[in-house]
Design a protein around this nucleic acid. Structure first.
Lengths: 100, 100
DNA sequence: TGGCTATTTGGCAAAATTGACAATTAGCGC
DNA sequence: GCGCTAATTGTCAATTTTGCCAAATAGCCA
């Protein structure tokens, strides 16, 4: 894999996480599976919007989906994604004051 | 800090990393400080573009800058950021086939 | 001081992201 | 089959991001 492609690929995955609603989704999925309608409640956006956020995460290979009756349940494929949470919080501690 | 604000803040930091050029910069800075013109060589974009990428990372509190003569050297503030590299590569291994 | 190099900033156009509404698909139970 | 719920997809406007050129700023050295 070319260096350039490596960064390109990584950027795709990271970009998939770079949204507050999608981070909320990932944080929730650390406990258990959630269906779209539950996530919609938590996020408070249109269901179509939530569905698109989920598609972004799924296309990036971060989460997986499974159908049960007429619901779709999403689950975390790579729990390591959550390491990023603590890392980001360390960034925050480091520079104390949040974003400039 | 409200949950909502937490995800918002985290998204800002992650968004700052979500670009192939900025990932290349972070990867380079793991070895040592670099000045803007060195990074420009590596990235191959206009210097003004590189300078803006650096500003994004600095505003997110991920890197720091120091002036020496008429050059500006950038360095990594939070090396933990690099944990994300291995995590993303694990995502890639997990789903094998890169992005769909 | 003036010229030179390194860097940042203003402005702008092209591209990508976001989020809503409406329409469609899929699976349930009657 | 029908109606109902859950979810996805089409379309589109608003916003944000990206990257270049040109102009401005800052620090060197003669």
């Amino acid at each position: 894999m070319l260096e350039t492609d490596k960064y390109q690929y990584m950027a795709e995955v990271i970009k998939a996480m770079a949204h507050s609603s999608r981070l909320l989704i990932l944080d929730k999925l650390r406990e258990r599976e959630y269906c779209v309608c539950e996530l919609q409640e938590l996020i408070g956006a249109d269901m179509s919007t939530v569905s698109r956020h989920l598609a972004v995460l799924r296309n990036a290979g971060i989460i997986d989906s499974r159908k049960h009756n007429n619901q779709v349940f999403y689950s975390l494929l790579c729990p390591c994604v959550l390491d990023i949470f603590s890392c980001v919080m360390e960034v925050r501690k480091q520079n104390g004051r949040g974003l400039k």
